[in-house]
Amino acid sequence: MFRNNYDNDSVTFSPQGRIFQVEYAAEAVKQGSVVVGIASKTHVVLVAIKRNAEELSSYQKKLFPIDEHVAIAIAGLTSDARVLSNFMKQQCLGHRLTFGRSMPVRTLVEIIGSKAQINTQHYGKRPYGVGLLVAGVDDHGPHLFEFQPSGMTEEMVAFAIGARSQMARTYLEKNIDKFADCDREELIRHGLRALKESLVQDRELTIDNTSVGVSGVVKAEDGSSKVEPFQVYDQQDVTAWIESVADDKEGGAGTGETEAEGMEVDS
């Protein structure tokens, strides 16, 4: 591997004004298995591929609920993610205590952004080796944010991070105009299809390796809107969704609507 003099720590700029340690940390994100997030006008979903170290070991969790209304999907160093997750849980709880309401998603994301930035400017610290998709619902509706080790945070319509995530992003870009008006189930299916794009040859979605998380705003009987708390689904709870996208790969047949989308993916 090529080395240079400017990549030993996060307090040294290269002559081009780059900080290699931060860029390397971004590489760590690509080592993690892929996670996908999409937001519509009413819902936000996170879907993830879980990996197991060996045949007989358990699968590493990828989706972590933070508060009633927020959850994260992680790619990269799990232990770093746990630190951030605990921190986010505390922040959300603290916000509820002082303000008596849930924390706006952007506020939460900007707090961890600031926290991560500090690690890129001080000697003896290292950037976080994890990327996050932060999904949540607040007064302004559903939101999806991407968090990078550099401390960069951006609100996205849909996004994917982790190994081979470019394939998933390509799928998302092609279908981006559809997401806004998708209902809950359609959104999950789009997520799973994006996820499938990033799978290695011969691998497929199973109830063991797939996680699905959803939150949204639901209209109550009296017309008022209510938050559907973030819920993570695993195992038999994701069976139906996996089956619903099982046969539409590479433009394969499915329901009427999925067929049309499959065609577009191909074009």
């Binding site: 999806l144 319509v157 849909a158």
Partner: peptide, 10 residues
């Protein structure tokens, strides 16, 4: 930087 960015949100 990406088509997936939410327009005018950031």
């Amino acid at each position: 930087t990406s088509k997936l960015l939410k327009p005018n949100a950031n």
